[in-house]
């Protein structure tokens, strides 16, 4: 798949799931009937229910585990490809960016505290235990996005205010909610770090252009693998043997390096990946990478091994 097509595929997925969850499927995302006794449920909702009820409801736990299984396989695809609130923030990116630019001269905030959401997760679970009900669900922006309008009717309750309120936080930073506060994301992140399918960028040929970092809505540093490669002992040994320890820092030197050295670098780079707990698998970094774009230009399509490998 060409990098650009990935972007289109993701937008298509977001639209489909938005329509499905917010409008068509009765029951909304929090628990969607898959037919018969099978449900797809929000794992956080299930966890709150379990804590609130103080007993294991086997059916609910199984339906909550579906999404966790998906996360273990593909990472937080829920956040990047399914979540209707996440989709909303992506679609409103431009007007929100304009608001951000307008308030750029205001007081500086340092809101990128990604650990905060684990605290929120703890708080949510504690509240569920104390109040004996899934209290967070009433103000959950993901749930309220699903519940506000659709075939099940239009909601005019207080919770309607949640979505615009949380969206306004986006004027602080891109995907502020997802990055800093979202307890669902935090729960999925716990499992996403063990994901099987990893995203790889061409770290050995990295031009250091920073486009991936700029493209990442979650504020991650996808090119970190390039930094790891530089100080890898085997790589360093080979580079010093070749006489250019800083080869990976110098523009154009990788292309001129002898083939065995490039093979070693490529092999090492293949063992590094961008994804971790904070990656929503949106593939923006892959789509933005000029090295991959260039390879795609040369070969007609991106070499799959350079991009996604299980």
């Amino acid at each position: 798949m060409k990098p650009r097509q990935l972007k289109i595929a993701r937008t298509a997925s977001q639209i489909v799931f938005f329509l499905l969850l917010a409008a068509l499927l009765v029951g909304t995302f929090c628990s969607v009937s898959l037919g018969g006794d099978y449900y797809l449920s929000c794992p956080l909702g299930v966890l709150q229910l379990t804590l609130g009820a103080r007993e294991m409801l086997v059916g609910a736990v199984v339906s909550g585990l579906l999404l966790i299984g998906l996360t273990l396989l593909l990472g937080r695809v829920f956040c990047g490809w399914i979540c209707p609130f996440g989709a909303l923030t992506d679609w409103l990116r431009k007007p929100l960016a304009r608001c951000r630019a307008a308030r750029a001269d205001g007081p500086a905030l340092h809101p990128d505290n990604k650990v905060l959401k684990y605290g929120v997760l703890g708080g949510v679970l504690l509240a569920a235990g104390i109040f004996r009900s899934p209290a967070f669900c009433t103000i959950c922006p993901v749930g309220t996005t699903c519940r506000t309008a659709g075939l099940q009717g239009v909601n005019f309750g207080l919770e309607t205010a949640t979505v615009p309120l949380i969206l306004s936080l986006e004027t602080v930073n891109r995907r502020f909610w997802c990055k800093v506060l979202c307890p669902i994301g935090a729960l999925l992140a716990v499992f996403a770090r063990f994901r099987l399918a990893k995203i790889r960028l061409p770290f050995a040929a990295c031009a250091g252009c920073n486009r991936c970092e700029q493209a990442c809505a979650m504020g991650n540093s996808p090119r970190q693998g390039h930094e790891c490669l530089k100080t890898d002992p085997t790589v360093l040994q080979a580079l010093i043997e070749y006489g250019v320890p800083d080869l990976l820092d110098r523009p154009g030197q990788y292309e001129r390096a002898p083939q065995p050295l490039r093979d070693l670098l490529d092999a090492k780079a293949g063992s590094l990946s961008v994804s971790g707990a904070e990656c929503t698998s949106c593939y923006s970094c892959v789509a933005a990478c000029p090295v991959l774009n260039r390879q795609a230009d040369k070969s007609g399509a991106v070499d799959q091994s350079a991009q996604i490998s299980a």
Binding site: P233, L236, Q237, I240, P245, D246
Partner: peptide, 12 residues
């Protein structure tokens, strides 16, 4: 450059 030499001397 020296940083990378040191990283090498330290680990290898």
């Amino acid at each position: 450059f020296v940083r990378l030499l040191f990283a090498y001397n330290k680990t290898v």
